[in-house]
């Protein structure tokens, strides 16, 4: 298992915390809490697969550039693909009520209710 830490600049706020996913093979769970240092998204990744640090960096950077939701993000990963990681991040942002508050939400992201 590998533990990775990232921090990205963030500007938007979420209404509440959110949990999505499961640590099942090829999947991951995400715990998001709208707490922590203002202006940043802190991300901790624990992954069962080693050797993909740069892929994580790129996947997360791309997501937080589009959805700069500030708060604490914990990702418990069991070898999810980057596409699924992005999907789960979007689900977590939506569930937290912050997914659509960004100026540049990617097409395909549904409005949060």
């Amino acid at each position: 298992m590998r533990t990775l830490q990232f921090t990205f600049p963030a500007v938007s706020r979420a209404a509440h915390r959110a949990h999505v996913g499961v640590v099942g093979s090829g999947d991951l769970e995400i715990l998001f809490e709208p707490t922590g240092a203002a202006g940043s998204a802190t991300v901790r990744v624990r992954t069962s697969v080693e050797g993909f640090d740069e892929v994580w960096q790129a996947t997360l950077q791309r997501f937080f550039a589009r959805v700069p939701l500030e708060g604490s993000w914990e990702l418990n990963d069991a070898a999810a693909t980057p596409a699924l990681v992005t999907l789960r991040l979007q689900q977590a942002a939506q569930a937290a009520g912050g997914g659509a508050s960004t100026p540049s939400a990617p097409t395909g992201t549904r409005e949060a209710s």
Binding site: V22, R46, D77
Partner: peptide
């Protein structure tokens, strides 16, 4: 005792297995 209570297994990470926040 849901995921945000973070009652995860203390035995998995030392064995290089990713825990789940509610231990499943």
């Amino acid at each position: 005792c849901g995921p945000f209570d973070r009652l995860e297994s203390p035995w998995l990470a030392p064995q290089e297995v990713t825990p789940q926040a509610d231990d499943g």
